[in-house]
Simulated assay, not measured.
Amino acid sequence: MGTTTLETVPEPKYWHLKTVLSDALDSEFAVGEILPNERELAARFGVARATLRQALEQLELEGRLQRRRGVGTTVAPPRVGVDVGPAQGGAQGWPGSAADVWHTEGHEDTAPPAAVARLLETAEDTPVHAVRRSRTSGGQPVATEVLYVPGASVPGLPADSGEDTETSGVARARAVLRELHRLALDGQDRSVELGSARADDARRLDRLPGAPVLVVTTRYVVDRRTAAVGVATFRADTCRLNFADTGADPVLAG
């Protein structure tokens, strides 16, 4: 591998390096291949390691690279298309329908984050039902979600048995979803923002804390009031979100 010298360009040096690295990924490396270490790459392109790190971080944000624990930096596969439109074939789009691709993992009673409490119009210290769900694609985790449901939205929910086990947690979560399906859903609205993975989400998504993520917040409305709020965290390096509600297959990137 020869030495490549960057020419003087008006754009930031790391940005030009990112373009050069992207071309190299297309022509010299295969999906899943591990990149040389930072010292070798910096020497090849004649840049400081700080400049190289900026370029690598940008390529990771764009989904071209993945940093994996105990492995290093590898060439990422094309992004997968993830449909986040209303559920098809379910009770007017409630989570947990027959066509839902999410996996129910558990339940807990907990106070919601401040932003969620404002959407639910509840006090921040008031516990609500928190249903945790996950989603995979091609065998790899792509998203994790917490669905926050106040007790007033599911008044028919049976009392908790008090058994603190994984099995009872999943059963409780499914019971909450079943009760939601009894409500006539007026509609949903969603917002998307770029964020950084918190430690718990990073562990569930097999990413490092602080990795770029896309946070999709969905508000479920019944009788003009918020009945539930879902906060889904998607891997920004692997996902391309598709908001079409036609039931068509998601558009794949790459």
Rank of each mutant, 00 (worst) to 15 (best):
E166S: 14
G195A: 13
F243G: 12
P95R: 01
L157K: 09
S161C: 07
L157G: 06
R235P: 00
D201Y: 13
V116L: 13
T167R: 10
T167Y: 10
R204N: 08
Q66R: 14
G2R: 14
R133Y: 02
P77Q: 04
S196Y: 03
H16P: 03
G32R: 12
P209K: 15
T233L: 07
G210R: 14
A227W: 01
A99C: 12
L65D: 02
H181W: 09
R132L: 11
P36T: 05
D164W: 10
D23E: 15
R178P: 07
G254R: 13
A87R: 11
V101P: 08
E11N: 10
V149T: 01
G138Q: 08
K13N: 01
R174T: 07
L52G: 04
A248G: 15
R190H: 03
A173G: 12
V176W: 00
G195R: 05
P95A: 09
R172K: 14
S196G: 08
P155D: 03
E33L: 09
A143G: 14
L183K: 10
D125C: 11
G90N: 14
R68S: 06
L17M: 04
R69P: 04
G72E: 07
P209E: 09
W15A: 00
Q188K: 13
A99Y: 15
G85P: 10
G93Q: 07
V192C: 06
G90L: 10
R44G: 02
T5I: 12
E166P: 08
H181G: 11
G70E: 01
L214R: 10
G90V: 04
G156S: 02
L177G: 03
G169N: 05
R225I: 00
L17R: 00
V231P: 03
E38N: 15
R53S: 06
S196V: 00
A91H: 09
G187Q: 11
V31I: 11
S27L: 14
A87Q: 11
T126S: 10
L185H: 03
T51H: 00
R53L: 05
R118M: 12
H16S: 09
L52E: 00
D245P: 01
G230Q: 08
Q140T: 13
R219K: 11
R207L: 14
E121H: 14
R182G: 06
E108P: 05
V192W: 04
G156R: 04
G210K: 07
E40H: 13
G70C: 01
G254L: 13
A42Y: 07
A76I: 03
